[in-house]
Design a protein around this nucleic acid. Structure first.
Lengths: 238, 238
DNA sequence: CGGGCGGTTGACTCCATTCAATACCTGTGG
DNA sequence: CCACAGGTATTGAATGGAGTCAACCGCCCG
């Protein structure tokens, strides 16, 4: 499963640990695209592991504007933070139809007490998520629109590669330009303009649900993309 | 110590757990203002607890621009993320002279294995940090300059209150307008202009290192500030 | 066939940046 | 004692990047 694949980039999991993860198979649930599975302010204290499909976590402001915090792809946690906090500080919406497995608060506490290495791996995943949010913050705060879009798509590509859903040629992307706009703090109109620029420069093409990197190396250069923060360089703990 | 005070907002720590924290007293170090104690890219895997003074974590872009991710005040962790990741994804600079205690990676692993509740408290602190970063992301992405500045200062005030260093009247603030600008993704010039607006509206005054909330309630209304994400509403675990 | 959603493009507007000049304070050295 | 430099704060004028408004297209689907 994608989570095992992702966590293996950090710790080499033992057979026992993998079986703990596999045992979650029973609590599998599905949600349809567009219907939130977690609401900002709710106090469920349940997290999920995304098994298939894409989701996004976001916050709504009082005036109705939306800021997407990040997208989640298979292998990612959903609403992990809300397990520790009193209530969820954000909402989660499936971008496509999704399959998830529930992770109850009690599971997490158990993991902490009984399988410290697994707990550590989860902490790693949380740290990596935070590093991604930080990188988004930097992008929105200091990068101009074109670089921001390019950087965003390169990051998605790198993350998808880790779970075998993309490579340097590109990836299948179910996002509309509105999703992209809400994620990187631009208007959808401007995202469209920027995508045109990038296409005309021969850097990337986003069309019909496919992101194609037309010139990966030049794109990386253009976006100043350094994947170090994704921490995908191999197991730290043997 | 401020960390105990902060963590107590989440879990009621036992005498034993408090003594574990207090035992860190030996590894105390000091750093002078302006000299980074953690560099982006280094792989020390050491974290710190800030005992006194202010620090900030930031990233530098290739073109020299800086984005401050967050400020840390007494009781906060510094570079906690870099313990789990292969290398630090950000730098940490003391804003004032600071005192810290070192937390080695081994300490953290031990805490996970031996004092699960303390590990949980640390996980809570990390989740809260992430929630703050997320709120900054939302601010930079979707709030206009005036609201952003107001929101930022209200958050700092709320955080400082938790460790007894501020209240609804205001707080002592060692930040220059340049720090504020780098934190909220504006230019220093514009921060200055916005501060004038806020002052002229009778909302807040930032002068001579003092932030004074001239009309706290109206300011909260203006900034749409909802402190829920700071999760300061009291212990979750008895 | 009509409606809705997503994408595309142009014209105009505006918020924030940049450039620039001035003021103020502190510490330093002549 | 005063001149000077460096850092910070303040304000004005010009510029520009991104938003808003609006129109139009293509496609899918009921």
């Amino acid at each position: 499963m994608p989570l095992v694949r992702k966590l293996s980039a950090f710790v080499a999991l033992s057979a026992e640990e993998i079986s703990v993860l596999e045992s979650l198979r029973k609590r599998r649930r599905t949600f349809v695209a567009g219907r939130d599975l977690v609401h900002q302010g709710q106090s469920d204290q349940t997290a999920y592991i995304l098994m298939s499909g894409w989701a996004c976590s976001y916050k709504i402001l009082a005036d109705g504007q939306r800021q997407i915090i990040d997208f989640q792809i298979p292998g990612d946690f959903l609403a992990l933070r809300s397990v520790l906090l009193h209530m969820s500080d954000h909402s989660v919406e499936p971008v496509t139809d999704i399959e998830v497995t529930e992770v109850l608060k009690s599971d997490l506490l158990e993991a902490f007490a009984q399988t410290p290495r697994l707990a550590l791996a989860i902490f790693w995943a949380a740290s990596r998520d935070e590093a991604m949010v930080v990188e988004h913050l930097v992008g929105i705060g200091r990068r101009d629109a074109a670089v921001r879009v390019a950087h965003f798509l390169l990051e998605l590509g790198a993350r998808l590669s880790l779970v075998g859903m993309g490579d340097k040629a590109g990836f299948a992307c179910p996002l509309t330009q509105y999703f992209v706009a809400d994620a990187i703090g631009l208007s959808a109109v401007h995202v469209n303009r920027v995508l045109r620029q990038l296409r005309e420069k021969g850097l990337l093409t986003f069309r019909d649900g496919i992101v194609r990197f037309d010139d990966y190396d030049r794109l990386v250069e253009f976006a100043q993309f350094d994947a170090a923060y994704l921490d995908q360089i191999g197991p730290l703990l043997a």
